[in-house]
């Protein structure tokens, strides 16, 4: 084996070793964030690190270690699948966390959803008021908690 090939081998090994250690540190950062952050929304911020960037680094380390080109599309499919599913589940968890008020409202700098919720409640109240004689039932149905 020529020395150039061996040097390139060492470089690829080093790069994949760095990728693996940094990808593992993403998991550690998520755990530290889970333990130290005060409420659900900021813990969600920490929890996404190993799911997207950590998985990307580790899959790249696999691709570098295998030394073949055909594994890269397979790894890309696995990563894209994770990219498609993680935002949906994070959206569901954050939505139910907002609705059940599992957060510290004083930590928020701005709450864009608050105005939308107020406007939706107002419009449903206005739209349902002429046809419904009792004002209680449309307000109950239209106000998202």
């Amino acid at each position: 084996m020529s020395p150039e090939v061996s040097v390139a081998d060492n470089v690829i090994d080093t790069v994949s070793a760095v990728f693996m250690v940094v990808g593992a540190l993403m998991s550690l950062a998520a755990a530290v964030g889970l333990l130290r952050f005060p409420d659900l929304l900021s813990r969600m911020h920490a929890a996404t690190k190993p799911q997207v960037l950590g998985l990307f680094l580790l899959l790249a380390a696999i691709g570098l270690q295998m030394r073949t080109w055909w594994v890269w599309p397979v790894l890309l499919v696995a990563w894209i699948f994770q990219l498609l599913t993680v935002p949906v589940s994070a959206h569901m968890v954050g939505r139910s966390g907002y609705r059940t008020k599992h957060m510290h409202r004083e930590l928020l700098r701005s709450d864009d959803l608050e105005a939308v919720v107020q406007k939706a409640a107002q419009s449903s109240r206005d739209g349902a008021a002429p046809q419904a004689p009792s004002p209680k039932s449309p307000a109950d149905g239209g106000t998202p908690q």
Partner: peptide, 10 residues
């Protein structure tokens, strides 16, 4: 749920 998701990622 969030912590078990992180455990799964680990």
């Amino acid at each position: 749920v969030l912590a078990s998701d992180v455990l799964l990622a680990i």
